[in-house]
């Protein structure tokens, strides 16, 4: 199964209200990274805080699931997260896996936008804001 991406055909979206904020810092030519990196960071933050945002009706696509091919460890983490939260059966429904993850990511994207806005160095602001367990 290695190398196979069951999410290739799934659209990656984020709330339309957050998209312009996030795209100030993430995206082609932007300093912090790609939009998928923002989404993934949002996902991690949402999971860390145990918070999801109710999916908005107005979303904006920023990528499709083929993007996971470049970092296939993310598929593993996505599925582990899905199994942990919803049980093994969810793996049969890739869209549900992404929907579940997007709930967390939407919450986390708001956090990311807040920390980036007004910061001289958004990367530094984000890294400083992340609560890291003691070494």
């Amino acid at each position: 199964m290695s190398g196979m991406n069951p999410y290739a055909s799934v659209e990656m979206t984020m709330p339309a209200d957050l998209h312009p904020k996030i795209s100030q810092f993430f995206g082609p030519g932007k300093p912090v990274g790609r939009m998928i990196d923002a989404w993934w960071l949002g996902l991690c933050i949402g999971v860390k805080h145990g918070q999801q945002r109710k999916r908005s009706d107005e979303v904006r696509k920023f990528a499709d699931g083929t993007i996971f091919a470049s970092d296939d460890w993310r598929i593993v983490h996505l599925e582990l997260l899905a199994v942990a939260k919803k049980g093994e059966a969810i793996l049969a429904q890739p869209r549900d896996v992404i929907r579940l993850a997007s709930g967390y990511a939407d919450y986390g994207l708001e956090w990311v936008a807040e920390h980036c806005l007004g910061a001289n160095e958004p990367i530094l602001a984000l890294l400083n804001a992340i609560e890291v367990p003691a070494a």
Partner: peptide, 23 residues
Amino acid sequence: MTGLLRSEALSWTLACGPLTMAL
């Protein structure tokens, strides 16, 4: 720092609880 923000290590660190549970 950008690499760290998008790293697998960050993912493991922040989502440690559910990932460990799934494993």
